[in-house]
């Protein structure tokens, strides 16, 4: 069994590189038949409107929804999080989403590119879910990122922004059953904790 990265549009190559660093040969996925051999799939960053259109035109929407229901491990980053969320605010009315993750997200919830930012996250909950020593604050890059506004019951919070006074800020990484998601881009930094957790979920 292998891990796949949805390669319709976006920074899928960065995810493939991240898995290669961890010694895992991941494959690019563009066609429905390629879903069948997977133990896990990444929905990468990109433009969520473009991705939902290409999922439809490539015949991937229905087969992927079925795999999600059947428990396929999926990791959504940024646009990938939007595609997984139960509710999308400020999206396009015709925007498609799989609705399998109990969160409400606001597209571009932190603003335009000028508001895109780098920071360090409180990742104690992520470390608690991973084997091995805690890794300290998690570096994170937010690019026109979606904002998680509500988190439903059954959704585990893995990382948060840190507020100005050190208090808890927005939830930015979550897990619910077979779904892992982040509002930021773990594939753009050198810290591989999120990818390691996903590989554990995928049974690699």
């Amino acid at each position: 069994m292998t891990v796949g990265v949805l390669a319709l549009q976006g920074d899928f190559a960065k995810h493939l590189d991240a898995f290669a660093e961890l010694g895992v040969e991941a494959v690019a996925v563009r066609r429905p038949v390629e879903l069948d051999a997977l133990c896990g799939l990444v929905l990468p960053g990109g433009e969520s409107t473009t991705l939902s259109l290409l999922l439809d035109s490539s015949g991937l929407t229905e087969p992927l929804a079925e795999h999600l229901r059947a428990g396929l491990a999926v990791f959504g980053t940024c646009a990938g999080l939007v595609l997984l969320a139960e509710e999308i605010l400020d999206g396009r009315p015709d925007q498609r989403a799989f609705g399998v993750l109990g969160v409400t997200v606001r597209r571009n919830g932190y603003g335009r590119q000028l508001a895109s930012f780098e920071t360090e996250l409180d990742a104690a909950a992520l470390d608690a879910s991973l084997s091995g020593d805690p890794g300290g604050p998690l570096p994170a890059v937010f690019i026109r990122a979606p904002r998680i506004e509500t988190v439903g019951p059954g959704v585990e919070v893995l990382a948060r922004l840190v507020g100005p006074g050190g208090e808890d800020g927005d939830v930015v990484a979550v897990r619910e059953k077979n779904i892992l998601a982040a509002a930021f881009h773990p594939e753009l930094t050198a810290d591989r904790r999120m990818h390691r957790l996903f590989l554990e979920m995928a049974g690699e």
Partner: peptide, 23 residues
Amino acid sequence: SETGRETGTFTVKRGLADMLRGG
């Protein structure tokens, strides 16, 4: 900013270019 968020870094600038790939 005082919230520990850095905007306008090269990583952030290049990051958006990465998101546009394949588009």
